[in-house]
């Protein structure tokens, strides 16, 4: 095909269709660029910043960058790994993440990322800020303690007439996720389930459903996040 472009990631020759975003393009070539906010088929937000890579010496988020011919990308360098780890640790201390008690434990992408980047304990002090839980809708509840403001729900979960069911409220470190009660109450069981699955962490939860996957059969119990993409599994 004419629309194929050639580029390199950490020296590895890659090809992809022109104008594919870098997260997807890397994936097609067996390379995992970690991300917590990207969702296939949804306009990228570039908000979690974990997919930061270096292109021609400049830091760019892979999810918001389209591959062009001859692009030289650094992803798996010490500098970038350290940056990603710092962002993951920031996310841990900015919320209240008590993994052992969380319904999403084992299926949580943030937790999986913590393991992948071998976070023992965050280098930053915890703040333990008080966050509100919203359980006012019939099928879902929102635990803001665990929200990482990735905006997956804001961007992708809409009512039948295209209105946002989720939105941000406030700004800066006081920003939280907000749910439209009226629209949320109109969601079908499947839509509610989909909302829970869209959330990378345990912030959007389906009511009356928790801890259904026994330990051992959860998403990240055996292989680290991203290993389904990577050709060589790095951790046993």
């Amino acid at each position: 095909m004419n629309d194929q472009v050639k580029f390199t990631i950490d020296g590895k020759q890659c090809t992809a269709e022109k104008n594919t975003n870098l997260v997807e393009a890397a994936k097609m070539n067996g390379i995992y660029i970690p991300t917590l906010c990207h969702l296939e088929g949804v306009k990228p937000a570039g908000s979690c910043r974990i997919c930061n890579v270096k292109i021609n010496g400049r830091f760019m988020t892979a999810c918001t960058t389209l591959v062009v011919d001859g692009m030289v990308i650094e992803s798996n360098t010490n500098e970038i790994q350290e940056l990603r780890k710092i962002i993951i640790e920031t996310l841990f201390v900015s919320g209240n993440h008590f993994c052992p008690a969380c319904e999403k434990s084992g299926n949580c992408e943030l937790q999986a990322m913590g393991y992948k980047y071998q976070m023992m304990v965050p280098r930053f002090p915890y703040e333990f800020e008080e966050k509100e839980v919203d359980a006012k809708t019939t099928k879902l509840y929102i635990d803001r303690n665990r929200c990482i403001l990735c905006k997956r729900c804001v961007r992708s979960i809409k009512s039948k007439d295209g209105k946002s069911i989720f939105a941000i409220k406030g700004r800066g470190h006081k920003a939280v996720i907000n749910i439209d009660h009226k629209l949320a109450n109109q969601m079908t069981d499947e839509e509610a389930m989909h909302a829970m699955e869209t959330c990378p962490v345990g912030s959007i939860l389906r009511k009356e459903r928790g801890y259904v996957d026994p330990i051992g059969s959860r998403k990240f119990d055996h292989k680290p996040i991203g290993s389904e993409i990577e050709e060589t599994v790095t951790v046993k």
């Binding site: 962002i87 002090p125 406030g170 006081k174």
Partner: peptide, 15 residues
Amino acid sequence: ESCGSCAPCRYLTVI
């Protein structure tokens, strides 16, 4: 004044 969109700006500033 941080808009809160990027995780590092939102919280590393506080740290």
